[in-house]
């Protein structure tokens, strides 16, 4: 039994390996982009719009709203990253309803790659907002003694992101595979439904945590102090 889609290799040339994870990822990418292109081809600005446009608008404005609620005042700047995280993980996980499908998020390499993206996005947005020094100063908050703990926190949360997503998705897939081999046909279907729910929830958790980390980096020192004062008073 293969635990990761990385182990299904289609083509290999030295370091370069084309495995199931990459192929599935490209498929999902293609699906997302073609769907987006097809739906946005005939966008209307009237009050009456098509169902698909309405569906897409609901998703995009929903993501926008979530980003705003977390504390990022200009969600248009972050929706590209956070929205793509949610859509990619969500579509990857929902695909488990197709028999024989293995989500790319069941690969630790994919979840690590996504966590790495978040890990890099946090300083990217933080520096973009406050500059290099301003961002680095945030590691000395509230005192310089906290520097090692802040650094450890930064790395550990990235690791936690990767492992959490991988663990949940991989375990779900594994459980379904095991149940299919030992139990009647109906029970894995129920587990599949549960897998749909956990897959969506995981996509939401991953993207919302990424938003929280970015928001923490983007918020200025003054704002942090203000929040602190409010909390202590």
């Amino acid at each position: 039994m293969e635990l990761s889609p990385d182990q299904t290799i289609f083509w290999e040339y030295g370091f370069i390996t084309i495995n199931l994870t990459l192929v599935t990822t490209w498929g999902i990418m293609l699906l997302l982009i073609v769907s987006a292109k097809l739906i946005t081809r005939k966008l209307k600005t009237n009050i009456k719009i098509s169902r698909w446009q309405c569906f897409l608008e609901m998703i995009v404005t929903g993501i926008n709203q979530q980003i705003k609620e977390v504390g990022l005042n200009k969600p248009e700047e972050y929706i590209g990253f956070i929205g793509t995280l949610f859509l990619f993980i969500g579509v990857s996980n929902i695909g488990i309803i197709f028999p024989g499908y293995t989500p790319p998020t069941a690969s630790l390499s994919t979840t690590a790659a996504l966590a790495l993206c978040v890990f890099l996005a946090v300083p990217f947005y933080g520096i973009g907002k406050h500059g290099v020094l301003g961002y680095l100063k945030s590691f000395l908050q509230p005192t310089w003694i906290m520097l090692p703990f802040n650094l450890i926190g930064e790395v550990s949360r990235t690791l936690a992101l990767a492992v959490r997503l991988f663990g949940n998705v991989m375990s779900g897939g594994m459980i379904i595979a095991i149940l299919l081999s030992i139990s009647p046909f109906i029970f894995p279907v129920v587990m599949n439904l549960l897998g749909l729910l956990t897959g969506t929830v995981q996509a939401y958790i991953f993207s919302i945590l990424a938003t929280v980390y970015i928001a923490a980096a983007v918020r200025s020192g003054k704002e942090k102090n203000k929040t602190k004062e409010i909390i202590t008073s």
Binding site: D6, F15, I16, T17, N19, T21, L22, T25, W26, M29, L32, I33, A36, K37, T40, L43, Q53, L56, E57, V60, N64, E76, I79, G80, F81, G83, T84, L87, F88, P104, S107, S109, T110, A112, A113, L114, L116, C117
Partner: peptide, 28 residues
């Protein structure tokens, strides 16, 4: 698999760019 990790990072960044262009911008 570090090659897969790098490839997935690139894939993800490409996807971000493409979705930004074809989905978020037009919809917003």
């Amino acid at each position: 698999d570090w090659f897969t990790v790098i490839a997935q990072v690139l894939n993800f960044l490409i996807l971000v760019w493409l979705l930004k262009k074809f989905l978020y911008k037009p919809i917003l």
